[in-house]
Design a protein around this nucleic acid. Structure first.
Length: 321
DNA sequence: ATTGCCGGGGT
DNA sequence: ACCCCGGCAAT
């Protein structure tokens, strides 16, 4: 017993002494100011130019004054936890905790639900046709222009459109699924019954008016935007596919990584009066993994304890969703 | 503001 | 291949 502790302590000390000289850690607490915003803006605008036309920003040692690397007082606890021997140290919540609960509730039936496959850095539906490849304008990647994300209920004869996902979830939960509204326990099922669409702010009203009511019985032309969106006649995969609901592929059971290329077709069951088909399974979208990742678990202080992926700002490998 | 991580750069 | 970070979406 004592020996174990000893080892842990030793380990801890070693860790500390080893990491003191670490030179990085630029700024832990970023105080966001106008400066940063403006700088960001400038950088953004600069990024469009092919090369860095300013002064070389190469500055290997930006902080001559000294970095503020304060020891986290929480170290003690992590130390004790590191007493976990047996080869793989693996992550181990401090056993001191009176609560034996698991650090991240597995959420039995709740599959983490899929996630949005990055909303496609498209230009937005401003282009009259697909000719936004004027070389004169590189436009590396720009996201939101004048589009606004709306959420449309796909329930058979509802078609309600809200501006917030939470609101839509609530709507579906209460109105269609008949669940309690305030119950935070959303198992993600609502996700299946609404989709999000990029609405051009300009033609917002127009688009909405044609989007909202919709009679489900009348055959909805699968691939024709039809009346709405006169500005984007073809849903070409070239760049922008605004009306395509990205969160509707209930195909895979687990890692639905690639978005579904399926055409915009209402996934509404053909003849479902009010009963949702018992289908909570796949995850059409993943809002954000519930599991805490290395960063959250260990904190910035113990970055060395993160899995490599996390250290490299890649998808965490240790705490998979 | 924070967190997770894609895309891309440096070695 | 390894390592790191800018920047962004989602929260």
């Amino acid at each position: 017993m004592l020996r174990v502790l000893d080892v842990g302590l030793e380990r801890c000390l070693a860790l500390h002494s080893a990491y003191i000289p670490v030179p990085r850690h630029r700024k832990l607490s970023g105080k966001a100011g106008i400066d940063e915003v403006m700088a960001a803006a400038v950088l953004t605008s600069l990024s469009t130019s092919p090369l860095v036309l300013g002064h070389p920003p190469a500055a290997p040692a930006p902080e001559p004054g000294g970095d503020v690397w304060k020891e986290a007082p929480a170290m003690s606890s992590s130390c004790s936890s590191s007493s976990n021997t047996s080869g793989d140290w693996s992550w181990d919540p401090p056993s001191d905790r009176s609560t034996p609960s698991t650090p991240s509730p597995p959420l039995s039936s709740h599959v983490p639900s899929a996630f949005l496959p990055t909303p496609l850095p498209d230009e937005g539906p401003d282009e009259p046709d697909g000719t936004h490849f004027i070389f004169g304008e590189p436009i590396p990647r720009k996201r939101k222009n004048s589009t606004k994300v709306m959420f449309k209920c796909l329930w058979k004869s509802c078609g309600k459109v809200l501006s917030s996902s939470s609101g839509m979830q609530k709507h579906i939960r209460t109105v269609h699924l008949g669940r309690k509204a305030d119950l935070e326990q959303s198992d993600g099922e609502e996700d299946f019954y609404y989709t999000e669409l990029d609405v051009d702010v300009d033609s917002l009203t127009d688009g909405l008016s044609s989007l909202t009511p919709v009679s489900p019985t009348s055959s909805v032309p699968p691939a024709f935007p039809g009346p709405e969106a006169p500005a984007l006649p073809n849903p070409d995969p070239v760049l922008g596919v605004p009306p395509t609901p990205p969160g509707l592929c209930h195909v895979h059971t687990d890692h639905a990584y690639q978005g579904c290329p399926a055409p915009p077709q209402p996934p509404v069951p053909p003849a479902a009066p009010a009963l949702p088909p018992p289908k909570p399974p796949s995850m059409p979208r993943r809002p954000r993994g519930e599991a805490k990742k290395c960063r959250k678990v260990y904190g910035m202080e113990n970055r060395e304890l993160w899995c490599t992926a996390c250290r490299w700002k890649k998808a965490c490998q240790r705490f998979l969703d």
